[in-house]
Amino acid sequence: MTRKMWIAIGLALGLSVPVSFVAHPATAATSDAIAQALVTATLQNLGLNDISPELSQQLTGQLTDAIDAGVIDPAISAQVASLLENPALLSGLSDVFNAHLEGETSVWRASDLSKSDSSGTPGESSIDSGSNSGSEDSGEDNSGANSNSGEDGSGDDWGDNVGEDGGSGDSTDDDSDSGSSGDNSGDDNESGNSGDGRDENEGDEGDDSDEYEDDSLDDDAYGLPGPVATFPSRLRASHA
């Protein structure tokens, strides 16, 4: 009898403690606070500073669901959580966001999911003119992109991205290395020299090494704040 009673008490405690912890308002508030800080910090990093409270609330709710679904990089969530008491320091994560953006865009570009979009969306002609030229490039760069996604495979994504967050240049180096080590070395020369698609617009018809120098000029064309302005050019460089 005594033994059964102790077992019952143990079970009750074992269930009630985790349940009360998860349901605790402080925990829920922290999750929301992380999502809200993440929305604000990432969108500011992309040049959006004037998010209304209503839109911010809506995005926060959706991002909370994404966090719960395990879609958000736990390392980035942890970094944001550690800076919640000092939101001004969140801007210091711009390198982290840019590196992650670069990596995710590369992986997305190489994935089949990105090609399953059949929607005709507003601004399609002008916006897609860029993506179409990009897809031409991705056709040539597929071996490089695939080898990259292979290295950064879904299992390693978090570790690699976060590990390279501190030095965004590292990820660029990795990409170019993986491209040149594989079959992509020939393709690199083609995309760099032939200048088809987006390269043509950049006017980067010189050799690949010049692209990094040209980046600063390209950044100005986007008219974006520093961290954002560096992303597209670095992305192009990583695919060159």
Partner: peptide, 23 residues
């Protein structure tokens, strides 16, 4: 906008697979 946030901080393929955002 949510996709832009996830591109900067999460796994975008998982987000599409879990129908949080569309392709």
């Amino acid at each position: 906008l949510l996709a832009a946030v996830i591109l900067s901080s999460g796994d975008i393929q998982a987000a599409v697979e879990k129908k949080i955002v569309s392709s």
